[in-house]
Design a protein around this nucleic acid. Sequence first.
DNA 1: TGACAATGTCACCGACGGGTGATATTTTTG
DNA 2: CAAAAATATCACCCGTCGGTGACATTGTCA
Lengths: 224, 224
Amino acid sequence: MKNQTSAGPVVRDRQATRMKLIQAVGTILSEKGFTALGVNAVARKAGVDKVLIYRYFGGMEQLMEAFGRESDFWPSIQELAGGDQAAYARLPLSEKLSQLTLNYTRALQSRPLTLEIMAWEMVERNRLTAELEAMRESTIMHFYEKFFDQHKVNVDLQALTAVIGAGLSYLVTRGRNIDIFNGIDLKSDQGWQRIQAAINIIILAFLKDRSTDKPSKGDRHANK
Amino acid sequence: MKNQTSAGPVVRDRQATRMKLIQAVGTILSEKGFTALGVNAVARKAGVDKVLIYRYFGGMEQLMEAFGRESDFWPSIQELAGGDQAAYARLPLSEKLSQLTLNYTRALQSRPLTLEIMAWEMVERNRLTAELEAMRESTIMHFYEKFFDQHKVNVDLQALTAVIGAGLSYLVTRGRNIDIFNGIDLKSDQGWQRIQAAINIIILAFLKDRSTDKPSKGDRHANK
DNA sequence: TGACAATGTCACCGACGGGTGATATTTTTG
DNA sequence: CAAAAATATCACCCGTCGGTGACATTGTCA
C-alpha cells in the first residue's frame, strides 16, 4: 500500500471534480448571470478542463440538470408552511393563504440563484429550467393536497393562487432590475408591506361570503 | 438631368436601408428570440452590410432603441380603455378595473414581440428594454390620472393593480413556454376565463364595503 | 467635366463559443 | 513489478461574435 504519494500534488478524484464543476455553475450564475453560462466559463471557474464536463456529465445540459438537483433551489413544503406544519394545518383558510404568500415571497427573495433561473425560464427552456419547473409544480401540488383539500370552498382557489403567485413571482424577479413598479417601491420594505397588505385584503375579501369551511349555506353562484 | 439610371440595380437609399435594418430586428426577435439578436444576424437578415448599423445608428444598442420607437409595442390608452374612452370614463370603478385587466391581457397576447422583450427585461437591461419600460410606466401613469384619480377610495388601488398587473404579465409571458401553471391551462380559453373570473371577483370583493365613489362614510381602517 | 460626399461592399482582426482527438499522469489491478 | 484503466491536460478545429479599415460605386454640386 503505497498510498502516500509524498507531498501529493494534483489529487485525482472524480467525485471532487464533479462537485467543483457543479459549484462553478452556481458561482457563474450568481456572479454573471445566465448569459455567461457555458462550458468554457464553467471549466475556467472550476479550475478544470472543459472536456471533463462532457466526460462526467455528457454536456452542459446535463451538468445544469445535476446542478438543479443538488441544491435547495425551491422552498420545501416545510418552509412554505412557516416551519411548523402541524400549527399551519390548524389555521383557518384565509390565514393559510396569507401565510403562504408571505413565506413564498421571503423564500424567493432569499434565493438569488432561483430568481436568476426563473428569469431565464421566461426566455429559454432547457433541462435546468425544466427541472426547476418540475420541482415547483410538484411542491405546490403536494402543498395543496396536504393543506387545502380539506377546505370545502365553492370558489376557484387555484385561479386565485395562480394570479397571486404569478404576481409575486413577477414582482420579486423584476425587483432585481427595477426600483418602481406601478408606483410601488420594490426596493423598500414599505413597498412590500403595501403589496402584502393588498394581498391580505384580496384573500379575505375573496373568501368572504363566498365560502365557508362548513358547507351549509346553499349559496352557489360565485360570479355576477 | 440624367436621373434615369437605365434598369437601375442597387438602389441607394439611406432611409430604406435604415428601415430594412429596423425591420430585421423585429424579424430576428420573433423568429429566434433575443439570444440570437446581434449585429451579424441583423445585417444578414436585412441583406445589408453590418457596418451600416454603426454608420446609421451608432451601434446595436441605438438600433434597438430606434426599433423600440418605431412600433406600437405598447398598448395605447385608447386600446386599454377598450376603444371608447368617453364610455369607459363613465363606468363604475369596478367595471373600469375589470375591463382594464381584460384589455391588458388581450393587448399583450396579441403582441408576441412585446412579450419577447418583456421576457428579456427579466434578464438584462438595455436600451430597448429601457425604452419599453419608459413607455409602459408613462402610459399606465396617464391612464391612472385620466380615469382613476376621480374616484375617492380609501384602499391601496396601486397595490391592487400592481399585483394583478404583475400576475397577468407573468402569466401571459410564461404562457409562451409552458402549458399549465398552478393547475391552470394557459393554452386554453377556458384557462384564461378562470383567471379573468378570479380577477373580477377579486376586484369586486376588494372594493366592496371598503370604498365608495362617494366618500361619506367615516370608515377609514383598511387592514385590521 | 471633375471634385467630393454619400452609400454600400469586402476582407480582415482578435476574442470567444462549443466540441474533439491525442497525450500525459495517476491510480488500480494482476 | 508491469499492464491497464481511470483521470486530467493540452492543442487544436471550426464557427460566430463585435468591430474596423480599405475600397468600390453612386449621386451631387460647382
